[in-house]
Design a protein around this nucleic acid. Structure first.
Ligand code: FES
Ligand code: FES
Lengths: 151, 151
DNA sequence: TTTTTCTAAGACCGGATTGTCTTAAATTAA
DNA sequence: TTAATTTAAGACAATCCGGTCTTAGAAAAA
């Protein structure tokens, strides 16, 4: 898996928060969010805490509490979220697992991987929460896990 | 990590076997290989068994035994090795972890990820053990883990 | 003030991956 | 035939990740 599950959940949750913020002001309840995205409440809470301590979200306890974007949606990129949860490794590591990926000691796939990795980086960097939620609305894109039906 | 550690070891080992085969004929000792690549002998053995049962390698027990390529080095691609160990998931999964990646129900990064994923696929597919070892020799590329120095 | 509704924090468990070890079996060499 | 060398197979431990649960603490509502 390219991104950890925690990271994908963090992205989906951030998009959800952005969309809710567009509708009404105030904090978004984690409980409600976990139900609508079909993500475990406690697990989601842990992930959002990471985003909060990374300075991307703010939180408020108590009734009417929840989480909210700390910055404007157009100033937070998907890259910010990826880095906050998974770190920078994806964008600096050798595809063959050799230590110290770089042009000094390239491995057999370094040339190709360097370019691909850069595209991945620019993709995340160019997508802000604002532009991405706009695309979701305009093109009816998916941004939530499906309801899991117990057999 | 994009590829599992087992998968990167499998690629490095396959390249090693190919290079040794170019020098002399016969089987390549796993014990010697594990020493030169600095990969745990038993772990490497397990990985090579997977490649053997996938039909990419053959093995022989006893003195003068070891592993050898089952097919010609120009007929085995890095993609064959990746698929044998990690499977096809990398090349079909949604970057945001949503089930059923496809054009019918795209997520917010599907367009970009689709192209990037395809480049990754074609990179592995276009590199055979023969062409890759040739590049390694011509360009002095890395293909082994560094010796780990115990502090 | 008291209760209710929330997030914060962290202990805890299960499964997958990584890595080690032991034993068995096959082949060669003495 | 016997001993040495090598892979095969699988048990086993350690670590990480995903996920659950419990308790604490803050804020609002009653
Ligand atoms: S050294 Fe391997 S990808 Fe850069
Ligand atoms: S649906 Fe997400 S990458 Fe294809």
């Amino acid at each position: 898996m390219v991104l950890s599950k925690a990271c994908t959940y963090g992205i989906l949750a951030s998009l959800y928060i952005t969309r809710e913020t567009n509708k009404k002001t105030g904090y978004v309840s984690i409980g409600r969010m976990s139900k609508e995205l079909h993500i475990s409440f406690h697990f989601l809470t842990k992930i959002l805490q990471e985003l909060t301590s990374a300075g991307l979200l703010t939180s408020m306890k108590g009734p009417k509490g929840g989480v909210a974007l700390k910055q404007d949606a157009k100033d937070i990129t998907l890259l910010d979220i990826v880095i906050a949860i998974d770190g920078m490794e994806l964008f600096s590591e050798c595809l063959l697992g050799l230590p110290g990926c770089g042009n000094e000691e390239p491995c057999a796939v370094h040339n190709e991987w360097g370019g691909i990795r850069e595209q991945l980086y620019q993709t995340f960097r160019s997508k802000t929460l604002a532009t991405t939620t706009q695309q979701i609305d305009e093109q009816n894109l998916r941004f939530a896990l499906p309801e899991l039906l117990d057999s």
